[in-house]
């Protein structure tokens, strides 16, 4: 059961839905679990056409389908909450939630930078994560019961968005390094011609790092507040707390260094990839040795 803090207590095994009879909300959640990855895939396909053919109608369709997919994805999370389960707190919805966050961060950047040719990489990542998320877990079998407080929801959503920002920074950074290497090694072909310029990839990397910094700041701040009011969430020396604070600090420093032009684009790209690897390790490994999220 959810106790108002960042912790859930009680049944640690797979949660069973108390009502075995078919529930309309459960049916809706299951339907959205199928529709959302399909829509993300359709949006990725439209962006692929944009990438290959620089097609303006496809760009419009890509953006529309992405927005529709994002809307239904959010509805999916809301329906999960309405069904009495905690959204984003089981592996499947966590993974697909990261895809949603990555797509949203990208769509905001695209609106700002006005170059849709790179969207295939971000939206295809969202489609992949949404598909994997739908495939790896039945929310009605694994999600903890109970709806978290607004503060906890913000903490979890902020963490996912922050990690998604780092994921995007790593993707765009990797593309920047690939474009740079292709130019140095004299690789000329359709893929390299269609890949955006080094300057544009740098803009996307920097924007993603900026988004990651903002979301990590919010989520860590909320986490510290929650820990302050609860005596069951570990100490300040908890490995998760230390590792996450360090991640935030490194992300902030990288973003500041790149923003103030003290770091070269290629260096920032490499650091972004390293930061995402670190964030992934923090999520997958360090959390196992932490008491902060015990019971989640």
């Amino acid at each position: 059961m959810y106790d108002g803090s960042l912790q859930w207590t009680g049944n640690s095994g797979p949660a069973r839905h108390p009502n075995p009879a078919p529930d309309p909300m459960e049916a809706l959640v299951r339907a959205l679990h199928v529709v959302v990855p399909v829509l993300w895939t359709a949006a990725a396909a439209a962006y692929w056409v944009v990438f290959v053919r620089d097609d303006l109608p496809a760009a419009r369709w890509g953006a529309r389908l992405s927005l529709l997919a994002a809307l239904l994805h959010v509805s999916d999370l809301a329906a999960t909450g309405a069904a009495g389960l905690a959204p984003l707190l089981q592996p499947g919805t966590l993974v697909s939630g990261m895809g949603l966050a990555a797509a949203l961060v990208y769509l905001v950047l695209e609106r700002k930078i006005r170059k849709p040719s790179i969207g295939v990489f971000a939206i295809a990542t969202a489609a992949l994560l949404a598909t994997v998320g739908s495939a790896i877990g039945d929310p009605f079998a694994t999600a903890p019961e109970g709806v978290p407080t607004g503060r906890t929801s913000l903490h979890v959503a902020g963490a996912i968005a922050g990690y998604a920002g780092l994921l995007l920074a790593a993707i765009f950074g990797a593309l920047l390094l690939a474009q740079q290497r292709a130019l140095r090694n004299r690789r000329f072909g359709l893929f390299w011609e269609r890949l955006p310029s080094i300057e544009l990839l740098d803009s996307f990397t920097r924007g993603s790092l900026g988004a990651a910094t903002i979301f990590l700041t919010v989520t860590i701040g909320l986490g510290h507040m929650a820990r302050h009011y609860s005596d069951r969430m570990g100490t300040s020396w908890d490995p998760k707390v230390i590792a996450t604070n360090l991640l935030w600090l490194l992300t902030l420093l990288t973003f500041a260094a790149r923003k103030s032009k003290r770091m070269r684009p290629a260096v920032a790209a490499r650091v972004s990839i390293g930061l995402f690897a670190y964030a992934f390790a923090n999520m997958a490994i360090v959390s196992r040795f932490s008491q902060v999220h015990a019971g989640l």
Partner: peptide, 8 residues
């Protein structure tokens, strides 16, 4: 074409 691969 080369310029467009480097500059935004």
């Amino acid at each position: 074409a080369l310029g467009e691969r480097v500059f935004r």
